[in-house]
Design a protein around this nucleic acid. Structure first.
Lengths: 206, 206
DNA sequence: TTCATTGTTGGACACGGTGTTCGACAACGG
DNA sequence: CCGTTGTCGAACACCGTGTCCAACAATGAA
């Protein structure tokens, strides 16, 4: 039925906005409480106080709703445009950590590895693009074989998500993004530097 | 009802052995075909040609069966006994990769991150114990603060599982364990060395 | 304010998977 | 051979999913 698609021209009906917002917030809350897999559509519409049929008028299923939530918080695509060629290597990871950790429950709900397979794949995809862009920026002069580059990309993204996951769990919620980023860089960059035979400025050990 | 527990004294009934084996094999196959989450108990008993009630006479649910499969293939607990104090640091990772990758479908089914949350947690647990044991072996003279050590442990295990996962996926099935291990060590050990201020022998870059 | 449009509602429904129970039956092993 | 024990399959209650529809209510434009 595809209700209330804001097709640029018309403003969406208030009711539509209200319903969608309620559903998104409900799912976000519930994910934070129990984890994504444990939440049922029934739970969501109960929490959101929305009719069952209304839910299915807007979203195909639980995954679809999750994707909508994810779409709201534009995970930075490769904004390679803004990068200067002489920026320090991987200088943007702190910004990324800050972005994800900026206190918004949304991020925690989605970034956590508890979230659905779809969302995880989606996030991974974007981060991999980011990493590839950075590597291709760095290897200006160098010719590196694709296999090695792909391996490093997987390593970078896998570790990043691992750190996000670890950070988001209750025990570490108090850690500042700076510290997480520093730990990440201290552990990851030496290996990248080693494998790609690059000369990265390595953070001091803490 | 707890059927046929081999309580040391008595040999288990043939029928029990047969049933359990059939169920384990069925689940293993199905995981490899569709991934764990997509498999239903119904599928398993159909494939295994076992009555529904029989299934529940042996296992609580799907997760329980998965745990039983996992228990069969003793993931090496910290065999710290066998380690000499002068072994090279993390020298055992190759053995671990070989162990997991030794062609057995079982490992692929279980080690893959597609498998249930329970199994994943279980595996992670054991690997973390391994890593902790190694770190405490290495810091004989040194006094390292627990936070740093825990961070490194998470980094090691998270990355290891990431590599396992990547390796097990179809495209890379042909890679020898040696190459995977080498990539792992090249990327991971420099960071560990950096953070723990240890002097590890680093593998050459490839 | 009026009114046609559009979204929302709740109930009914078919479907499929879960986990339990029970009596009849068959395989086991001493 | 025979008592024990495991297996079978059917029936059942339960729950979540996703669809459909007719009645109703909010909306926004005239």
């Amino acid at each position: 039925m595809a209700i209330g698609r804001s097709d640029g021209t018309t403003r969406p009906d208030r009711r539509v906005t209200r319903t969608r917002r309620a559903l998104k917030e409900a799912l976000t809350d519930l994910i934070l409480e129990r984890g994504y897999e444990a939440v049922t559509v029934q739970d969501v519409i109960d929490r959101a106080d929305v009719g069952r049929s209304t839910f299915y008028a807007h979203f195909i299923d639980k995954d679809d709703l999750l994707m909508a939530i994810l779409a709201d918080l534009d995970v930075p695509g490769p904004d390679t445009e803004r990068w200067k060629p002489d920026d320090p290597a991987f200088g943007w990871t702190l910004e990324l950590f800050r972005h994800f950790g900026s206190g918004k429950r949304l991020f925690k709900a989605v970034a956590s590895s508890q979230s659905g397979a779809l969302a995880r794949r989606e996030t991974t995809q974007r981060l991999e693009d980011l990493a590839r862009a950075e590597l291709s920026r760095l290897k200006v002069a160098r010719k590196l074989d694709p296999f090695r580059v792909e391996t490093v990309v997987r390593f970078l993204v896998g570790t990043f998500i691992g750190f996000m996951d670890w950070w988001m769990r209750a025990e570490n919620e108090h850690l500042p993004a700076e510290q997480v980023d520093h730990a990440f860089r201290s552990l990851v960059l030496p290996g990248v530097s080693n494998v790609l035979e690059l000369d990265l400025e390595l953070p001091k050990a803490l």
